[in-house]
Design a protein around this nucleic acid. Structure first.
Length: 285
DNA sequence: CTTGCGTCCTGCTCGC
DNA sequence: TGCGAGCAGGACGCAA
């Protein structure tokens, strides 16, 4: 579910709460959400390697992926998939029964005399998962290969050059993480509408001027969404339990058949790259 | 090499 | 009220 703004909003809360804390317990309820892509010790990782004994050294993000670095140089990449989320709770209280709570970490609070933190990975659909890595290089090689530039800071010229390489529809290209990292279905539709670009246009046909406009739209849409804590449609909840407030700002996503907020024309829907796409036939050319 | 489609899962909403 | 179809924020493997 989460796209870049949701993951970034989650990252900020996780970082603020667990950074510098030591993981003293890690529980795997469902082992198939922990995936090993390392070349060593195949199949024997799990609890031990989920960071137990490690201090959380960094909490970063690349595209839609969350990177948690440990004090021994290793770490884990958390992919939330469609329905994944991270929760942070007071670890001194009883763990309430939560469906699909696949992984649980108990982290000593980095602040003295504060309760430990219970961090959980919850994912009903299990399209997400946690990938462990032994070093930063290991992480780059196995998990971050092929990712395009960060959508939050993509320059227009760079976007133009990337879109120019493909004949695919621009909407499909924006969803491709190797073209641009972080944009998903919601923000692709929002940015295309904001820039006045029709989603079915071939990537190659986008002019430099249009690419500049699209890049501005992508960056500003993502920035505003991050500030709002992302878009809560159904699953997305921030680690502290609060929802993301950006849904109210959607101008096209989820509004098929309704009037365009810019011109009043009825918004149309079509399938692109097997994803529903909403656009304004008048504003987007 | 590039591109499009099916698939992995569960849960919710809508229409009959 | 009940029930099945369809749809959902993502990404990978495969086939043409």
């Amino acid at each position: 579910m989460p796209e870049l703004p949701e993951v970034e909003a989650i990252r900020r809360q996780v970082r603020r709460v667990v950074m510098g804390g030591r993981i003293h317990k890690a529980m795997v309820r469902r082992r198939d959400v922990v995936r090993d892509r390392s070349n060593h010790r195949k199949g024997r990782l799990f609890t031990k390697d989920l960071g137990r004994g490690q201090v959380v050294d960094s909490v970063e993000r690349r595209g839609k992926q969350l990177l948690v670095g440990f004090s021994d140089g290793g770490g884990m990449v958390v992919r939330l998939g469609m329905s994944g989320r991270i929760t942070l709770e007071d670890g001194s209280k009883r763990n309430p029964v939560v469906a699909h709570q696949h992984l649980v970490w108990m982290v000593e609070s980095p602040r003295p005399s504060q309760s430990p933190i219970r961090m959980s990975f919850i994912d009903p659909r299990r399209f997400g998962g946690v990938y462990l890595f032994g070093s930063v290089e290991d992480c780059r090689e196995r998990l971050l290969t092929g990712l395009g530039p960060e959508a939050t800071s993509i320059p227009g010229t760079r976007l133009h050059e990337r879109l120019g390489r493909t004949r695919r529809m621009v909407k499909a290209a924006l969803l491709d993480q190797s073209v641009l990292a972080g944009v998903g279905n919601i923000y692709a539709d929002e940015a295309l509408h904001s820039a006045g670009v029709h989603p079915e246009r071939a990537g190659q046909s986008i002019s430099l001027v249009e690419a500049e406009k699209l890049a501005v739209a992508i960056r500003s849409t993502l920035k505003r969404a991050i500030q709002a804590g992302g878009s809560t449609l159904r699953d997305h909840v921030l680690p502290d339990g609060s929802p993301g407030a950006f849904v109210g700002e959607h101008r096209v996503y989820g509004r098929g058949g309704k009037p365009c907020l810019a011109c009043g024309k009825e918004l149309e829907m079509l399938q692109i790259a097997s994803r529903s796409s909403i656009f304004c036939p008048r504003c987007q050319r």
